[in-house]
Design a protein around this nucleic acid. Structure first.
Length: 462
RNA sequence: GGCGCGAUGGCCGAGGAGUUAGGCGAGGGUCUGCAAAACCCUAAACACGAGUGCGAAUCUCGUUCGCGCCUCCA
């Protein structure tokens, strides 16, 4: 199995640390608002990776975090973070806001048939919430102080990046070339020793004085820096080194770079062997994002009577490492393609199967080549187009295992509906067209579509 | 300024030195009580300029344009 590793920027043959086991960690959402479909692309990518690894024989241990505290906005001198802002906007507490959007997130995940993380079970479920790991985050800061890598200013505790020789190995960008405060609105702390030093812990003083979520620490009241949670959660749940760490490309330069720095400095172990990053979804050629306001939610898809799995299929039709331009036309195209795949799947109830099992290998080969899902779907399409291929349940189960399109749990017709089809066939034989059309309409009301071919009537659920 | 990605037919997108990507759409056809679906056929592409090859959409260089990141982001 080949994967493109951001660490080294090359396609590499995947080798797990422990035979037949993969430790997989994913950077999850910040829950201050609804996820948009660009965010969801990342989780479909993750899910696909996990399914393919599982299919290849690995026992995948998957952990995903949820950021429910301390994401700095940085464009605001008040020092609000996104969750605090969301709370203010909705006149709720930060925890209420987080709970609400976590539910919404879990609902989206479920509609897209994305598997829940399976290697962590905490007080709030299967997603690891940053606020449930405060102690562990403080422990890392302690370790970094012991190693003389952390230092404090009036505002915060920082990680001294100059103490780590290979700091920034993921970005391959020289520190001197980095533009300081590339975005004008970035608030800086003039007590920082190096511009690229990042916060491990913020004190609830000055601009953060009113931060509503804060905890006691050996150094004073405050809240953790953003990067810390992932280091702490990985240490507490999977343990370093992990096999694969995933996230969006926007995380390479900052979040993942700093995560690596913290973890590797604190624990003296490599954090992750493979770093996989998904590219962004674009709208009209621009990145879909909350701040640009050019985003759609899964609910917008549903409101257009397009089923969520069509979105999953659309994502699979492009490679995870390419920017994809989202249009409603392309989503509708995927919805039609999905319908064709589903109709073909319904044949498994109606016609004796005759599928070339080898064709599944072609699909798996494509998937194991750095998740070439578009090529895999192209191969699926040729299977479907070949009249000699009709699926059986076993084949659909295997397809679902990697693509997650829910083809294997579609329902056979009830006996009553089957009888209706028999009745209709008899009516047609007697050229009783009004009766036959009546039955066809009746079944259509139950979302069952009939297609008359030369020798028989085929149904499919729509 | 630095780092990175990209430019493929009407739209979305794989591939990648010589041989069909695929989806949706368009045109034609087969089948058919009607309808729908399915299937078959067809048209249509590799940003621009130079270079290296017997041969370049595919490699190299340059140009133009677009996108992302450089302490909010998947």
């Amino acid at each position: 199995m080949k994967l493109f590793n951001s660490l080294g920027r090359e396609l590499q043959e995947f080798k797990s640390i422990t035979p037949n086991e993969v430790k997989l960690y994913t950077c999850g959402p910040t829950v201050y608002d609804y996820s948009h479909i660009g965010n969801l692309r990342a989780y479909v990518f993750d899910d696909t990776l996990r399914r393919i690894l599982t299919n290849a024989g690995y026992n995948v241990k998957h952990v995903m975090n949820i950021t429910d505290v301390g994401h700095l906005v940085s464009d605001d001198d008040q020092g609000d973070d996104k969750l605090e802002k969301g709370a203010l906007r909705e006149q709720k507490t930060v925890s209420e806001v987080a709970d609400f959007y976590i539910k919404a997130f879990e609902n989206d995940i479920s509609l897209l048939n994305i598997l829940e993380p399976n290697a962590y079970k905490g007080p709030h479920g299967k997603y690891a919430r940053a606020t449930d790991f405060i102690d562990q985050q403080i422990e890392i800061v302690k370790l970094l102080f012991e190693k003389d890598i952390a230092y404090r200013t009036k505002q915060a505790i920082y990680f001294n990046t100059s103490k780590l020789p290979d700091y920034g190995k993921l970005t391959e960008q020289k520190l001197d070339d980095k533009e300081v405060a590339a975005r004008a609105e970035v608030v800086s702390d003039d007590q920082k020793e190096n511009p690229q030093d990042f916060a491990l812990w913020f004190f609830t003083v000055e601009r953060f004085a009113n931060h509503s979520l804060h905890w006691n620490s050996p150094w004073g009241e405050g809240f953790p820096g953003w990067h810390l949670e992932c280091s702490a959660i990985i240490h507490a749940t999977l343990g370093e080194p992990i096999d694969i760490h995933t996230g969006g490309v926007d995380h390479i330069g900052t979040h993942h770079t700093n995560e690596i720095a913290q973890s590797e400095a604190a624990f003296d172990v490599k954090l992750a062997n493979y770093w996989l990053h998904n590219e962004h979804l674009l709208v009209n050629g621009r990145k879909m994002s909350k701040s640009l306001g050019n985003y759609y939610r899964l609910q917008d898809v549903i409101d257009k009577d397009i089923e969520p799995l069509a979105l999953r299929l659309l994502f699979l039709q492009s490679h995870y490492r390419t920017q994809t331009n989202f249009t409603w036309d392309s989503l509708e195209a995927s919805a039609k393609f999905l319908k064709r795949i589903q109709s073909w799947s319904d044949l498994s109830f109606q016609i004796d199967s005759s599928i070339q099992k080898a064709s599944l290998n072609d699909i798996e080969d494509a998937l194991r080549d750095d998740l070439n899902t578009p090529l895999a779907l192209s191969r699926l399409s040729s299977i479907i187009s070949d009249k000699n291929n009709t699926p059986d349940h076993e084949f659909l189960v295997k397809l679902d295992a990697v693509l997650g399109l829910e083809l294997s749990n579609r329902l056979d017709l009830s006996d009553e509906d089957k009888k209706l089809i028999v009745d209709r066939t008899r009516a047609r034989k007697n050229q009783d067209w009004s009766e036959s059309d009546k039955i066809r309409d009746l079944l259509l009301e139950k979302s069952i579509e009939l297609n008359d071919s030369q020798d028989r009537t085929i149904w499919s659920r729509v």
